[in-house]
Write a protein that binds this DNA or RNA. Structure first.
Lengths: 201, 201
DNA sequence: ATATAATATTAACACTGTAAAGTTAAATCA
DNA sequence: TGATTTAACTTTACAGTGTTAATATTATAT
């Protein structure tokens, strides 16, 4: 009598189908330019079916963003095993963060800029994937501080400073592609290096 | 025969009225949630009248943002006279920048995040107000470099690093108001101080 | 007073997100 | 098996969107 399980599996499958279609459209056309009807067309269901799986369009966005955060977390966690120099690991984490943002610019913007606009106070509350990402940063920073590599001993502030730097450069590069930036990799490098040096000094 | 002038003045007046109404609504309700009809209602004209003064909704946003950039530029220029320590002036400029962003968070987001989404390549091209703002930053940085206060001699990269830092912290504070940030002023201070120290070291 | 130009409005189109009601197919129970 | 409940999906509908074209109104110039 596994019909219930099969049904549940099928339901989950359609949910994923919707999610995949939504992400593809959000990324290629921008959240605002994607209608529920477009998503529905893509998966060949009626528009209102989506509402059986997601509360509304913002909820759909929310789910897409949670996935993105999970991907980011996975990308970062891979660097954790690097047991060499904690400052070097931190530097590489910063680089991986920006790289991730530039590899999936629209996903990054959806998650860190568009979503907060639609889900006012939801963002990084306890237990969320977003919090886990920041916890990763906390760990990295903590290691550096324990080894007395940084001037200040405040894990929170230090982490927030680093996040500001990488978030800032990521968004600028995404949003103003025509600005006469310094060669991209050099700029990213300099941003991270400068911040870390500033923390040491 | 100053009727022509009067007419032009009246036209300019209505243009401003539209602009003011649009900004108020964009700021209080968010660009996406403001319809041309809402703006029209507010100024007590028919919706289509707006199209005699602005090409479309994106153009209206564009004009609002240009104003914001002008305000930002004015705010910054006031600090220019400060002929004391160029590094100190730079620090204060950074603070003023973030303060401006937090004082008018919605305007800041409209200008630096929403607008680029709607006006793809328009942003900081030659002669634009946006470029003037970055030129201000160039001047400040240049002064520091001339006085050999910074490690590198690259005005462009140095400016971009600073911009990344302040842009990043501004947006994070705006977008994630519920995150357990370090006390706001302390965080801003640390971000700017850290970056500048990193540039010196 | 009439013609001309400038300005504003009305009506319409093809869309939007989403709620309510209706339909169909599958699972359960008699 | 046949009736009934349940789950999944669709149709219809509403109020609202940006924007265009055609029309109307008003103020100026002749």
């Amino acid at each position: 009598m596994g019909t219930k399980e099969r049904r549940a599996r099928e339901k989950e499958q359609l949910r994923r189908q919707i999610l995949v279609a939504a992400r593809e459209l959000f990324v290629s056309e921008g959240y605002e330019n994607v209608s529920m009807r477009k998503i529905a067309n893509k998966i060949e269901y009626s528009p209102t079916t989506i509402y059986l799986y997601f509360k509304d369009k913002a909820d759909l966005l929310d789910s897409v963003c949670k996935e993105t955060l999970l991907n980011l977390l996975n990308t970062l966690e891979k660097l954790k095993n690097d047991k060499s120099d904690p400052v070097e690991t931190l530097r590489r984490s910063g680089q991986a963060y920006v790289e991730f943002g530039l590899k999936y610019p629209q996903d990054y913007k959806l998650t860190f800029v568009i979503r907060p606009q639609f889900q006012k106070d939801l963002g990084l509350q306890e237990g969320s994937v977003g919090e886990k990402v920041f916890n990763y940063l906390r760990e990295m920073v903590s290691e550096c501080i324990q080894q007395k590599r940084f001037r200040h001993a405040d894990v929170e502030t230090t982490g927030q400073v680093l996040w500001s730097a990488v978030h800032g450069v990521t968004l600028l590069l995404i949003d103003f592609p025509d600005f006469p930036w310094t060669e991209k990799d050099k700029l990213i490098d300099t941003v991270i290096h400068t911040t870390i040096e500033g923390l040491k000094a």
